[in-house]
Simulated scan of single mutants.
Amino acid sequence: MQNAPLILLAAGGTGGHLFPAEALGVELMKRGMRVRLATDARALRYSGLFTRELIDVVPSETVRGRNPLALAHTAVKLAAGTAVALDLMRRLKPKAVAGFGGYPTLPPLLAARLFRIPSVIHDSNAVLGRANRLLSGGVSAIATSLPGVLDRDAALAGKTTTTGTPMRPAIVAAAATPFVAPEPAGPLRVLVVGGSQGARVMSDVVPGAIERLEPALWRRLKLVQQVRDEDMARVRAVYDRLKLDAELAPFFSDLPARLAASHLVISRSGAGTVAELGAVGRPSILVPLPGSIDQDQFANAGVLAEAGGAIRIAQGDFTPDRLAAEISTLAAEPARLTTMAAAARTVGKLDAAERLADLVMKVAGI
């Protein structure tokens, strides 16, 4: 392997960026390639394909506002990161660089351009992210998870390929579990998650919604909910009072398996979550994160909602009464849950890692 071509992957240090990078890395290694990951220090928390000896930490900073001091700080950090990335390109001599979004991808992709190394960016969202937008004009190819992302941009559409989002092996395994609708009086398995950091709104709204359900539905519910440490006591108190079968934790390491076991998922609509719901094929109620400049989560949720696989609720409308009504309706219509699961599956692409690997190797001339 020492003499095998090297593909350098670049990704922000969150699961939404790292998991697709890892999935591509696995596929490239199957094809005899070597891979390394350029990212920020946050990625060192994640276990998986990228052990510490395969990670190159590159300084970076996210643009957080228009304050001149903050912008100057960001510029200095990105300049330092670019200097580190230039040294990486000189030493590693990768055949291509593939970026997965987030500001930590800027230095490696800019350095690749200066060294005339072929490059690809992948974006999982229904709207191109800001870092990828900055890079898009100078890369060799663009891969998107969803169709139509750049259809209106003639300058970029010609070098854009829809590949889907590469899925980590645990999601591919979960996708092999068929959806089985709940029996009319049988258990109803509901999974509530809020993204990599959790979401306070789920702790604020879901317990109140469960409280408003008919007591007969309480006895059917098998609830798994991601709850931040600071919200745990108040959420648990509600479910204990209702004598609910509920498992609560700040993080679930086996989330793909829990996703496959669910009849209904209530979640934010980050790109990774939407892609995984499509790959596994599970009905969902999606609450986009408000306030985003790009409104990417609203657009992501819209893809599943328009396909018929999800119900999209803006956070302002996400109240205990509304959520209780939606859960009650779906619990009474198991056939609708089956239809939603099948519709969600039409959005997923389980061969996305292979498609993206094909594109990267073509750009690299391998």
Score class of each variant (00 low, 15 high):
Gly137Met: 09
Gly13Val: 04
Phe318Glu: 10
Phe318Trp: 04
Ala21Ile: 11
Glu326Phe: 05
Ile210Val: 15
Thr144Val: 12
Gly198His: 03
Ala75Gln: 05
Val149Asn: 04
Ser203His: 08
Leu134Pro: 00
Ser47Glu: 15
Thr339Trp: 03
Gly308Ile: 05
Leu255Met: 15
Ser145Trp: 01
Tyr46Trp: 14
Arg268Ser: 07
Glu211Leu: 07
Gly208Asn: 08
Ala174Glu: 11
Ile117Leu: 03
Glu333Lys: 10
Pro147Leu: 07
Arg200Leu: 03
Ser196His: 10
Arg241Met: 04
Ala181Thr: 02
Phe50Pro: 09
Val193Thr: 13
Leu78Pro: 00
Glu276Tyr: 00
Ala79Asn: 10
Ser196Trp: 06
Phe251Asn: 12
Ala331Arg: 11
Pro187His: 03
Leu337Ser: 10
Pro59Gln: 06
Pro207Asp: 11
Ser328Val: 02
Pro320Leu: 10
Ala173Asp: 15
Asn3Arg: 11
Val238Glu: 03
Gly309Phe: 04
Gln225Phe: 02
Leu223Phe: 01
Leu54Thr: 02
Ser269Thr: 11
Ala344Asp: 11
Leu9Ser: 12
Leu9Ile: 13
Glu230His: 06
Arg282Gly: 00
Ala301Phe: 09
Gly208Cys: 11
Thr14Ser: 15
Ile311Gln: 14
Gly65Leu: 09
Ala11Phe: 05
Val57Asn: 07
Asp204Ala: 15
Ser328Ala: 15
Leu54Gln: 11
Pro178Ala: 00
Arg34Lys: 13
Val172Met: 12
Gly13Thr: 07
Gly81Asp: 07
Leu330Asp: 10
Gly65Lys: 08
Gln197Lys: 03
Ala307Val: 07
Arg220Val: 08
Thr62Glu: 09
Leu259His: 03
Met202Trp: 02
Glu22Ser: 15
Gln2Ser: 13
Pro59Phe: 01
Ser145Leu: 07
Gly291Thr: 02
Val205Asp: 09
Gly129Met: 09
Pro104Val: 03
Arg91Pro: 01
Leu350Glu: 03
Asn3Lys: 13
Gln295Pro: 00
Leu277Ser: 09
Gly195Cys: 05
Ala305His: 00
Pro166Tyr: 07
Arg34Ile: 08
Arg113Ala: 14
Ala154Asp: 12
Asp321Tyr: 04
Leu49Ile: 04
Pro107Asn: 04
Val206Ala: 05
Ala154Pro: 09
Leu128Phe: 05
Asp87His: 12
Leu69Tyr: 07
Ser328Lys: 14
Glu53Gln: 14
Asp296Tyr: 04
Arg355Ala: 13
Leu264Cys: 04
Leu359Lys: 08
Ala38Ile: 06
Gly148Val: 06
Lys159Pro: 03
Pro94Asn: 10
Ala364Met: 00
Leu304Cys: 04
Pro59Arg: 09
Ser262Tyr: 06
Val192Ile: 09
Lys30Gln: 14
Met232Ile: 00
